[in-house]
């Protein structure tokens, strides 16, 4: 989300590396589960096949991007000032934080407080959060959630 800090095709190499890492991890773990024979396959056989596919794809992606780097799409690197950088980073931090707060509070503090926290925290991710409006939404959403999910569908939530 921030300024491009690597060469145009570094992304391709990272993608290849990710696939290679996944493939190796899965293959090694699968062998530990037991491969068995073709006639009587064990637990690890199918995951091992998948891990091998991932390794092959990882190699293919790496080789392709190593040998034939994609032409630089726009040579001009985007110039982004600090305000913009902060703006792009904020939702990446606050949205996950809000969801995590919801998860942490749901079974202890209950649905109403968890919903309030999720709305308040994630709402701050907006560019220029209108705090008064956000607070109103944060107060009303839990009520709406209660009406729809608990009263309407009878879902078993701990309310508070």
């Amino acid at each position: 989300m921030t300024r491009r800090t690597f060469a145009p095709d570094a992304g391709g190499l990272i993608a290849g590396a990710i696939m290679l890492a996944i493939g190796i991890g899965v293959t090694v773990t699968s062998v530990g589960y037991g491969i068995g024979s073709l006639r009587r396959m064990d637990t690890g056989y199918f995951p091992m096949l998948l891990g091998s596919c991932a390794i092959l794809l990882g190699l293919a992606i790496t080789v392709r991007h190593g040998l034939f780097p994609a032409p630089a799409e726009d040579a001009e690197p985007e110039t982004i000032d600090w305000t913009e950088r902060w703006h792009r980073l904020r939702p990446m931090l606050l949205v996950p934080l809000g969801i995590a707060a919801f998860a942490a509070l749901l079974e202890s503090a209950g649905l109403l407080i968890a919903t309030f926290a999720l709305v308040m925290i994630s709402g701050l991710a907006a560019e220029k959060p209108n705090l008064k409006r956000l607070f109103m939404i944060a107060l009303l959403t839990p009520v709406g959630a209660w009406v729809v999910f608990v009263l309407g569908f009878g879902l078993p939530f701990k309310l508070y």
Binding site: G154, L155, P156, F157, K158, L159
Partner: peptide, 20 residues
């Protein structure tokens, strides 16, 4: 209601008490 809800919390809640 609160009492019922905690008992059946983790349930799929078929034939839910609310429905009855």
């Amino acid at each position: 209601m609160q009492h019922m809800l905690t008992i059946t919390r983790r349930a799929l809640m078929l034939a839910g008490a609310a429905a009855l």
